[in-house]
Design a binder for these strands. Structure first.
Lengths: 244, 244
DNA sequence: GAGTGGTCTAGACCACCCT
DNA sequence: GGGTGGTCTAGACCACTCA
């Protein structure tokens, strides 16, 4: 297959195409409000099927970068250029913070090995009382606390030599190293007002948080972590594109 | 085309299939944890293409209702009995409440015609001071308040005879009647603790809310409403499937 | 290895927007 | 009417899971 501009890489074709288009948008080739080439043109240009083009455009749309309008075309969003990392995108918090131009930090407050509570066992789909590693972390951006996270990782099958590393840096990085990289997370969104959440001098005064109560699953569908992350209201902006 | 069980209706095929599967799950035909028929079986059973089956399964997955696992199958997730809405799915709140088996209600608290504030004008992309219709509503499920909503609709181009109807029933229904049905919304998620939100005897005591601060766009990309909806914490469960 | 979902292709028809 | 996206089909091959 001969492609005028090779998409290169080993991830899926639609994903590579999305990346390619994203970088063209970010580079300023398409200004906010500008129309992207039509789907048919992209099919010709990149020598892929229309389904692939559409999948890529959907990805960009979910990221709030592109606005696809029936009968008119696909447009670079006005809001798109600034907004990144929608809530539906699963990624490391540290990575998100770094991409937003801030310096991520992590501080482990506690870390113990203990039996799972009934709730935790239910969420993780393991037996009540099975061994878990419980970590309490503070997540920082430019030295300021943006979230407090209470994470529980099942120990069954987890490489023992990596246990102590949990919670000292990016949780995602350690899980990836253990071969249990989260591929999906089902998150409940709550508003929490609780002065007992958090710790230290950085604890926010009105203890108001957006709680993401989430269970992370590996590609194989097994629960690899149960994380209750309390985002300090106002310091982290969650955006969701809702469609019907 | 002969179908063993007709999917009936006039919405898209994949959507009807998703509805059909959802009702089969809700009816208890598939218990939580049970495996659904394979994609190939669904193709045969409903006489649709595999793409259609997959689109339907993706919808259910986004609602947190099923768990699709590569190489294993699609499984019914555990789900609570409360009102559960997929955050990335844009739909009428009333409709969501009804689908969860509760009786939706709506009470208009105030409704005035006034110039847009600077913030509202910015969100809606209209001139500051342009005429808007501001509505305050209480949304009920089985007679209990689940949300308080502060909505602003630009009046330019809005059918005058429908203005007074705004906020008396489903906002979506009225907007649809006006030909400006929201097709997309960009929502910010916040935790709010404020005793001045809400009104009446139904006002929750700890005034704790999940705020969806959202701008609704029509298919043509124009902003049709700016809605700040305060969901009473604990009465409405928002779920987001996060993927990478 | 059989069965499952993940991705991709090529082609078709429809609904919508604009002029 | 011409172009654009929305949906659907039928078929193919690959990657993963599990017995």
């Amino acid at each position: 297959m001969t492609v005028s501009t090779p998409l290169g890489g080993r991830t899926s074709l639609s994903r590579r195409l999305a990346e390619e288009l994203r970088s063209r948008i970010m580079s300023g080739e398409f200004a906010p409000g500008a129309r992207l080439p039509s789907e048919a043109e992209l099919v010709r240009r990149y020598q892929v099927s229309r389904v692939t083009v559409r999948t890529a455009l959907r990805t960009l749309e979910a990221q709030g970068l592109v606005d696809v309008r029936h009968g008119s075309g696909s447009f670079v969003s006005d809001f798109g250029a600034g907004i990144r990392a929608g809530l539906q995108e699963l990624r490391s918090i540290s990575e998100t913070i770094r991409e937003m131009g801030h310096e991520p930090g992590m501080e482990r407050h506690s870390a113990i090995r203990r039996p799972a509570t009934v709730v935790e066992a239910g969420k993780l789909g393991i037996g009540a009382g099975a061994g878990v590693f419980a970590v309490e972390r503070m997540i920082l951006a430019d030295g300021q606390a943006v979230a407090f996270s209470y994470d529980v990782i099942p120990l069954a099958g987890f490489p023992p030599e990596l246990v102590d590393q949990l919670g000292t840096g990016s949780l995602f990085a350690t899980l990836a190293e253990a071969g249990t990289m989260p591929a999906r997370a089902l998150a409940e969104v709550h508003a929490i007002s609780d002065e007992t959440i958090g710790w230290g001098p950085q604890r926010p005064d009105p203890g108001l948080y957006v709680l993401l109560d989430q269970v992370h699953f590996s590609r194989r569908g097994s629960a690899v972590a149960y994380c209750r992350t309390y985002f300090v209201e106002g310091r982290f902006q969650f955006v969701v594109l809702r469609t019907n």
